[in-house]
Simulated scan of single mutants.
Amino acid sequence: MTTVQIPERMNFAAVAPRVFKAVLALDAAAREGIDPVLLELVQIRVSQINKCAYCIDYHTADARKAGESEERIYQLSAWHESSLYTAEERAALALSEAVTLLPGGVSDEVYAQARQHFDDRELAQLIALIFTVNAWNRMNATTRKTPGTQ
């Protein structure tokens, strides 16, 4: 099987190092206090929606390191139809999709569902995680950063 090489448009970290470092700092702050498995599920799902191959590759590897099963990783794009996710994970994934697909807004129902599982601090961290992975996806997809590139 021959693979297709997708040329990277630019090395964002090299040409905009201050912005890149700021997003790294935001990323570190957003991760604080979030369960590592939930964190990776959210980042994978948002990256799937945004079609960011680099981030999907990166976060599925990290999910495996955090103990996530292959089955749950494979079914994540169809989590609505899967019984493999907890109520808390489902609330986080619903919020992730609503924030990522913002033109429809975050409904009161989705927000209330998340509130049932996360206190104010946890919910703020989750929202920060979601907008941070969206920033990474937009940076990497726009510049065509692909798995295997630095």
Rank of each mutant, 00 (worst) to 15 (best):
T3E: 15
Q5C: 01
P7Y: 05
P7F: 07
F12K: 01
A13M: 10
V15G: 00
V19N: 02
V19H: 04
L26W: 08
D27L: 02
A28P: 09
A29W: 12
G33A: 01
P36F: 02
V37I: 12
L38A: 04
L39G: 03
E40D: 12
L41D: 06
I44W: 10
Q48K: 02
N50G: 05
A53H: 08
Y54V: 02
Y54A: 00
Y58W: 10
H59M: 03
H59L: 03
A61H: 09
A63H: 02
R64Q: 12
R64V: 12
E68T: 01
S69K: 08
E70D: 15
E70P: 09
Q75F: 14
Q75Y: 14
L76Q: 10
A78H: 09
H80T: 08
H80I: 06
T86R: 03
A87N: 11
A87R: 08
E88A: 14
A91T: 12
A94P: 09
V99K: 04
S107E: 05
V110Q: 06
V110S: 03
Y111W: 15
R115P: 08
D119N: 15
R121D: 14
R121Y: 06
L126N: 00
L129M: 07
I130F: 13
I130R: 02
F131Y: 14
V133H: 06
W136L: 04
N140Y: 11
N140I: 10
A141F: 06
G148F: 04
T149G: 08
Q150E: 15
